[in-house]
Amino acid sequence: MFASLGILTLVILAAAVVLVMMVIGIYNSLVAGRNQVDNAWSQIDVQLKRRHDLIPNLVETAKGYMQHERQTFEAITQARSQAMGAKNVAEASKAEGALTEALSKFMLVVENYPDLKANQNFLSLQETLTSTENKISFARQAYNDAAMGYNNRIQMFPSNIVAGVFSFTKRDYFEVGNEAERAVPQVKF
């Protein structure tokens, strides 16, 4: 009687230990996944900040050459300040899209100013801008990949139970509104 109770207790204890270990494992992998998503998100942030920092320099360099493009510059500056004031993913996504559009319009207008295109300083700014646009879209790509993996784990059994208990929540994807925004600014000589 005592012996069988002992065995039963042992079995229950062993099962409990296995269960706790599983929960710990799942919990840790969820935390790792969340950190990965956060890290990917901060990468987008880094690149967006870089673009925000680049714009005053770009406008300053180009202004002297482009007296008749006040509107273009205003659109860029306005989109920038809106983007910098955005409070959540959806808002940032929209404002940054507008900024991308304003910048690609600017790059088209540059066509009409050969003096500007001969300016070494501007050429290097142009390369930096092109690359920053690319970095933004690659950072989004990496973020969406990470977010999808994390969201899958939150929704799938058995990790969804652990996610529910410790309130891990799904992440928004960084979606791009339309095809025009998906393209990098069109730079042509």
Partner: peptide, 10 residues
């Protein structure tokens, strides 16, 4: 720039 772009993507 190109290397950094790929570093970010990967």
């Amino acid at each position: 720039n190109v290397v950094e772009e790929m570093k970010i993507a990967a």
